[in-house]
């Protein structure tokens, strides 16, 4: 896989990049330690003739944009988002469905992007933390709630909590504190002021109802 056809998120123009360019780009983006993910190509040969065979070059609907991307069969969505699409707001805590840091919305439903094969969400709408704010930069009401209440400490778990909360609030707009706690119970915080986190998310829920 010498060449990668990647879409430049800024210009939406597909650009042909050499392997060297991609390495430079990745290093420049501050993700050098993760660059190896890009080049571990699939060794299994394509079975184009078999029913259900999968093409590697796919288009994903991420934050309302159509993103062309070359995805390995075994690649997780967290990997694609962070290391191919540059959407590093999605965090990896455990990489095994046990912390929630990687939570994104798939067709409005919160799921762990570390435990999804990217190819299985090809036809779905993906929203990450980068897609929450409005086009004009106005924060999502739940983001605003978190900001106003200063809900988090180090912030590593914040994007996962926000995505879990936003997904939960879409179907439960007016939860009690206990219901919201249950809704975001698939997210861990190492700094652990869950009470403060809940206060912030409840504030966000209130803003969301008013919006």
């Amino acid at each position: 896989m010498a060449d990668h056809e990647l879409e430049d998120p800024g210009t939406s123009t597909p650009v042909k990049l050499s392997r060297r360019d991609v390495i430079k780009g990745v290093i420049a983006a501050g993700a050098a330690s993760s660059a190896s993910y890009l080049f571990r190509g699939s060794t299994a040969s394509a079975q184009a003739s078999a029913p259900g065979a999968v093409e590697r070059l796919i288009t994903l609907d991420v934050n309302g944009q159509q993103r062309r991307v070359d995805v390995m069969k075994q690649e997780t969505l967290a990997m694609t988002l962070r290391y191919k699409l540059g959407l590093t707001g999605t965090k990896l805590g455990c990489d095994r469905a046990e912390c929630g840091a990687c939570t994104v919305l798939i067709d409005d439903v919160p799921r762990y992007s570390c435990s999804i094969f990217t190819h299985t969400v090809r036809d779905k709408k993906i929203v990450t933390i980068e897609g929450l704010a409005g086009a004009n930069g106005k924060l999502h009401p739940v983001q605003q709630g978190v900001l106003d209440e200063q809900g988090f400490q180090c912030g590593f778990c914040t994007s996962g909590f926000l995505m879990a909360a936003v997904g939960f609030l879409k179907t439960n707009p007016n939860p009690t504190r206990a219901e919201l706690a249950h809704g975001v119970s698939g997210n861990l915080c190492r700094c652990m002021d869950y009470d403060k986190i809940l206060t912030a998310l409840m504030r966000g829920a209130e803003y969301m109802r008013k919006a």
């Binding site: 060794t43 299994a44 029913p51 259900g52 999968v54 075994q74 455990c94 094969f117």
Partner: peptide
């Protein structure tokens, strides 16, 4: 909780039936 880099390659099929 050990992160072991990327999952080894496999062929993926998404049959319709």
């Amino acid at each position: 909780a050990v992160i072991r880099d990327v999952i080894p390659a496999f062929e993926l099929f998404q049959p319709a039936s």
